[in-house]
């Protein structure tokens, strides 16, 4: 079984908001210096499902990641966990691409690879949480998509997906090829082994540009955006402490109630 896993490199979602800065003009987040990117945690879980499928049924896992230098490090991480091959999709023309364009870029690369049974993505990227890329790739490829998948099995030549719903599960049987987006209820990702990391470091990761994957550059990059981001804010949280007293407890309580009312905390 040939599996393609699409991964994204993001700023560590555990970073405190104070570490982020937003460039008002370009509406972009300026990453804090010296803090490494990490693989989107949902993508790591997608890779874990792929690795389990490969262990059971054999086959090959190919990693795709759109992006520059950061993409290489997430591909390397995936290789160290046991993926067989990885391609970075990188081109100046791709800069500023939104989910629609990224889905197009990924679908071009997947078509180039051609021989696949299953495409896996995370349910969403933990940076913007749009959750668009997976379904849009499936749409581009014209293959069925199942989202929020927790488990995948091969059963009588069909792919069997277990999908998480509120308070229960759905099970779908789908003929390959298909695409699934993987949810956080899927098993936790494994850690790389020593030899895995060494092997990953020895592998050359090929970089494909727009020409390599036959992508139409008018459909990618900042100019292809049909949605204009007009606002981007980091929520400000202010904390302050006031002491409220009084002659006696009753008076203090009364004043406290008044103050809370004034602040709109109680009515």
């Amino acid at each position: 079984m040939n599996i393609i896993v699409c991964v994204k490199q993001i700023l560590d979602p555990d970073l405190p908001p104070a570490k982020f800065r937003v460039d008002e003009q370009s509406k972009r987040v300026i990453p804090p210096e010296g803090i490494p990117f990490v693989m989107n945690p949902y993508d790591e879980q997608a890779l874990e499902l792929a690795l389990r499928l490969k262990e059971k049924n054999g086959g090959k896992i190919i990693i795709l990641s759109a992006g520059g230098q950061e993409a290489l490090s997430s591909i390397k991480h995936a290789l160290s966990l046991g993926a067989d091959d990885g391609f970075a999709l990188s081109d100046e023309a791709f800069d500023g691409s939104d989910s629609f364009s990224v889905a197009y870029i990924l679908s071009c690369a997947i078509k180039k690879i051609g021989n696949y049974d299953l495409v896996l993505c995370g349910r969403q990227a933990a940076d913007w949480d749009e959750g668009l890329t997976g379904p849009l790739v499936a749409h581009r490829l014209g293959i069925p998509v199942i989202n929020l998948v927790r488990e995948i099995e091969l059963s009588n030549d069909k792919l069997r997906f277990t999908r998480v719903i509120s308070g229960g599960e759905q099970v779908f049987d789908v003929a390959a090829p298909a695409l699934a987006t993987v949810t956080n209820e899927a098993p936790q990702p494994r850690l790389p082994t020593g030899w895995g990391i060494i092997a990953a470091n020895r592998k050359q990761i090929a970089v494909w540009n727009a020409g390599d994957i036959g992508a139409d550059v008018s459909l990618v990059g900042g100019r292809a955006r049909r949605r204009k981001l007009t606002g981007l804010f980091v929520t400000e949280r202010n904390r302050s402490c006031e002491f409220i007293g009084g002659e006696n407890v009753l008076e203090a309580a009364d004043k406290l109630a008044q103050r809370l009312n004034q602040l709109g905390a109680i009515r």
Binding site: L191, P192, T193, G194, W195, G196, I197, I198
Partner: peptide, 8 residues
Amino acid sequence: IRAGGDEL
């Protein structure tokens, strides 16, 4: 050395 569960 021993690293990542492997003997190197």
